[in-house]
Design a protein around this nucleic acid. Structure first.
Length: 493
RNA sequence: GGCGGCGUAGCCAAGUGGUAAGGCAGAGGUCUGCAAAACCUCUAUUCAGCGGUUCAAAUCCGCUCGCCGCCUCCA
């Protein structure tokens, strides 16, 4: 079945029909660069990274635009606090954002425009809006007159009269209607500015997205995404600006991701209950964070907690352990050929064979259904179990068996490309997790190794009492021993 | 107050009309000198509650309870 996406605009899942066959245009609101990103930003960006990857996987030629808002009141405030230029602040946090996204395994969007590089385009749209009577100049500011756009609030399903009746809307003297919003703000002394037909000033918050999306994707394009909190006013205002200026439909499918919660409450700057990405990554592996985020549907709220991250890590370890086992076998036995015919498989391989045949179609079906990554991961876990079972029961690794295992391995490589997961060398990744855990343990690796040797000697001498003593001692310190034919390894519990 | 969402096992989480995926945790078993890992089996007669529609409801409708979001900068 074809790709279906939930469109905020209609409130329904719709079959995706691209504007131009074989192509997809996507604009996602980026960050305002005045501080480090928190995990809410991580979620939004990871979610749209996966959507970008999946659209490409599905065969579309995708143009993905994600902007940096590098001029804004908050940036100016921050610059004033530090006594530096706004550019210094913006550049610092653009770099920080790039580092964070890179660590989280995000692909680079096709274009990452900055608002300040598009002032001319912004001014051009505002001029058009003024000329068409949708905007007016007022003491150096330019405002959008919401009453001139009958479809205003159609995205968020609100009612202008009722919103006006709400006491929380502050009436600015410069505005004709309290709901009008700024397209251009005249600059105060000492503030950064650009020359414009209305004097020196800077763009309002929403207009940059109208300008940049039009520049790179055209007047009408396929997807526009962002966090749920952007529906109003940001996206609503973008629609008003773009559609009034261009006289045509702005966005065809609106996608909005759910929040990251802390104790079931929205994480936000104002509540002060946020964690920055870098803080979280001091404690957790970036792929674990990514895996955690993808373990829920992108529109659902997701609760961030140590417990949930630990569970995610356990799940990811299960997958990587399976991949490490596969790689070990495949490394020792060169793979070749296609998926073997059923009748040539040993009994234990039938289930795996069947799972592998279904895996990609099921994965695709899950992703086609509004990017259901949680379901998709479920499919992969089923394959892990089938693989483990087969591995546990297989003694001889003939060409047929190897071909089957190679296909299992390939499944994870292929789906991992879409999800941005499993890209690490499994053995190395597991080793890294182990090392990270080992740091928190009150015993050195050398000491552990020494005790393992001592235990081996004791066991060789059939001194199981001493051997068990050592094992229990280590277990007490959180070290779990794993005996195998090749010797003893250890893990941090 | 207006608009919207959610409530599925101890925890996380899919499933939106056809008889409850998956993960974590837990219990028993196989393996093991004993363990661990892995594997096998088990763990929701039931989807917040109460009514209704239907041959059939976690899924649709109504009401109730609880939680959350947007309405102000916010991913």
């Amino acid at each position: 079945m074809a790709l279906r996406v939930y469109n905020t605009f209609t409130g329904e899942k719709e079959i995706f029909v691209p504007l131009q066959p074989g192509k997809a245009g996507m604009y996602v609101c980026g960050v305002t660069v005045y501080d480090y990103c928190h995990i809410g930003h991580a979620r939004a960006n990871i979610v749209f990274d996966v959507i970008f990857r999946y659209l490409k996987y599905a065969g579309y030629d995708v143009t993905y635009v994600r902007n940096y808002t590098d001029i804004d009141d908050k940036i100016i405030n921050r610059a004033n606090q530090e006594g530096v230029d706004f550019r210094t602040i913006a550049d610092r946090y653009i770099q920080a954002f790039d580092e964070d996204m890179d660590r989280l395994g995000l692909e680079k969007p096709t274009v990452e425009p900055k608002a300040t590089d598009h002032i001319a385009g912004i001014i051009a749209i505002i001029e058009t809006l003024v000329a068409k009577g949708h905007a007016y100049e007022s003491e150096g500011d330019v405002y959008y007159a919401v009453e001139t756009f009958p479809e205003y609030l159609k995205l968020s399903g609100r009612n202008l009269e009722e919103m006006l009746a709400g006491a929380r809307v502050e009436i600015g003297e410069k505005k004709r209607n309290p709901m009008d919003f700024a397209l251009w703000k005249g600059s105060k002394p000492g503030e950064p500015f650009w020359e414009s037909p209305w004097g020196q000033g800077r763009p309002g918050w929403h207009i940059e997205c109208s300008a940049m999306s039009m520049e790179f994707l055209g007047k009408t394009f396929d997807f526009h995404g962002g966090g749920k909190d952007l529906v109003f006013p940001h996206h609503e205002n973008e629609i008003a600006q773009s559609e009034a200026a261009n006289g045509c439909r702005f966005v065809r499918y609106w996608l909005h991701n759910g929040f990251v919660n802390i104790n079931s409450e929205k994480m936000s700057k104002s509540l002060g209950n946020f964690f920055t990405i870098r803080t979280v990554l001091e404690k957790y592996d970036p792929e674990t964070l990514r895996f955690f985020i993808l373990s829920a549907h992108y529109r659902s709220p997701i609760d961030f907690s140590d417990q949930n991250l630990d569970d995610a890590l356990s799940g990811l370890e299960r997958i990587y352990s399976c991949l490490a086992a596969l790689d070990e076998v495949l490394h020792a036995n060169p793979a070749s050929g296609d998926l073997p015919a059923l009748e040539t498989l040993p009994e234990a391989g039938l289930e795996l064979h069947e799972k592998l045949l279904q895996a990609v179609p099921r994965f695709v079906e899950a992703m086609d259904d509004d990017f259901n990554t949680a379901l998709a991961l479920g499919v992969l876990f089923e394959t892990v179990r089938a693989t483990n079972r087969f591995l546990a029961e297989t003694k001889e690794f003939g060409p047929v068996v190897i071909a089957l295992l190679a296909h299992a391995r390939h499944l994870f490589t292929e789906t991992g490309t879409v999800l941005g997961l499993f890209g690490n060398n499994p053995a190395e990744w597991l080793e890294g997790i182990k090392a990270a855990k080992a740091v928190q343990v009150d015993i050195s690796a050398e000491e552990i190794e020494r005790l393992i040797v001592e235990r081996a000697e004791a066991r060789k001498a059939k001194d199981f009492k001493r051997g068990d003593e050592i094992r229990d001692l280590l277990l007490e310190k959180g070290i779990q021993l794993l005996d195998s034919a090749q010797g003893t390894t250890w893990n941090v519990k």
